[in-house]
Design a protein around this nucleic acid. Structure first.
Lengths: 248, 248
DNA sequence: GAAATATCTTGATATAAATCAACATATCGA
DNA sequence: TCGATATGTTGATTTATATCAAGATATTTC
């Protein structure tokens, strides 16, 4: 059974070591069934700055992000940009599309992906009904996040927006399920995106973002190392600011 | 077969005459199978101003809106409100929730609904696999709309927001699939929501909404009858403004 | 490792939209 | 039908954030 053996090797290589295995939609599929997953998908590597989904282009594939981070955004004709989200490990991309993609996805650093053609997802879903539920769950979670972002963009102040952003970035760094509180002590986060990205994510200008970082620093809420790393010194206070409970 | 006959009568009563039948998720189910749908759901009538979904409450049910309109919103602790959307005929409510609802739903006028407990949807989906696709499609469409709303709230001016709102309200009034253009001539829309609702939907204040209505009126883009009805005199121009192509 | 370039921060000023305030119109209840 | 209440409009002023403009750090390139 040479074929069987080498297939298992391929699977071990692809899914066995995949960092996204347990957090992505792939966790709806048993280890035993991984060969099917491998057969229906292909691995893609995208260098920093390259787009792998283009707004308006025909939507043929879904992607699972298995390494690195990406910015998702739309543009207005005059170049105004709104960043929809920062995709991270395990995120499923391409749900928000009918015939064509509703956003562009661009690698922040180097990015690893698994590409699933729509037809592959159809076959997988047919074979593993649990996957359908998992996709549904993914869509629901995405919708809930979107609603929170509407509140942020429609009704929050610049301070509240930046605080919300920092707390949101901290969530994956925290123990699962726990809220962000002061008691957890300082929390250091990487910020792989530029200030411009943060501004376009929060509906602000780069200057306002920079100034607000400055204020938080002065107030002892954060400390900054070289613009691409922050330490939350008072995560709970930031969380209160984010929710409009406390103003500073 | 008296039972059979009366059941068919009940079905004819409930789904046969339902205005939402062809636009809601129910269109994934054949006429022959409607009795199952009737058995798994119940009709609900909600008087004007009453909430039928409460943000944070445990999410037990989905709803299909079959008459009237509803405002969906979240609140911040200090009362700031963001309207997530205005639900209309055929809309499927409750997808954006995990254990608890992510928004409150409040009847604008009197509202008719079909309530589907989660368990009923599970059974229906098991029995009619096409329904799963339809739900997926519903979620995708919702996500695409949400992304457009992020751009609106994050990057558009007051003029662009109101123009976007008016064009959006016009879509269900247009022939299906056609874009809103000037050639279609004047388009009269009911506006069942208050100015405050519109403001909270667009991330503006009531005064700014009112002033922008005033400007559009003066510029001959719209005419207004008693605050709850607008006529779009130049739908195409409004559409250009909405997309930031033209500023006035 | 120094120059060149890009990114970020900080300051001065402008402005779109918010807030405060008065008035007008519509809706409702007796 | 009329007064009372809610809702919407318009005007004057304030303010949070954008814009304009330098300067300061990073980062990259040779």
């Amino acid at each position: 059974m040479e074929t069987g053996r080498s297939l298992m090797d391929a699977v071990r290589e692809r899914c066995g070591r995949c960092a996204g295995r347990s957090v992505s939609i792939c966790n709806a599929i048993d280890d035993n069934d991984l060969p099917v997953l491998v057969a229906e998908s292909s691995r893609v590597t995208v260098p920093a700055g390259r787009c792998f989904i283009e707004e308006g282009a025909p939507a043929h594939d879904f992607y699972v992000l298995t390494g690195g981070r990406a910015r998702l955004f739309s543009l207005m004709p005059d170049g105004r940009r709104q960043i929809i989200g920062f995709a991270e490990l395990g995120d499923f991309l391409g749900l928000a599309s009918s015939d064509s993609y509703a956003f562009t996805a661009e690698a922040l650093g180097d990015v690893n992906l698994c590409r699933f053609p729509h037809s592959s997802i159809d076959r997988l879903v047919e074979r593993f009904p649990r996957l359908r539920c998992r996709l549904q769950q993914e869509a629901s979670g995405e919708l809930v996040k979107m609603q929170a972002r509407l509140m942020l963009l429609g009704r929050k102040t610049a301070r509240e927006r930046l605080a919300s952003f920092l707390v949101e970035q901290a969530v994956p760094c925290c123990a699962h399920g726990r809220a962000v509180k002061d008691e957890h002590g300082p929390l250091t986060l990487p910020l792989p995106m530029s200030r411009t990205d943060i501004a376009d994510y929060l509906g602000l200008t780069i200057e306002t973002v920079s100034r607000t970082f400055g204020l938080f620093k002065k107030e002892g809420l954060i400390s900054v190392k070289g613009a691409s790393s922050v330490t939350l010194l008072a995560p709970g206070t930031l969380s209160s600011i984010a929710n409009g409970i406390r103003q500073g």
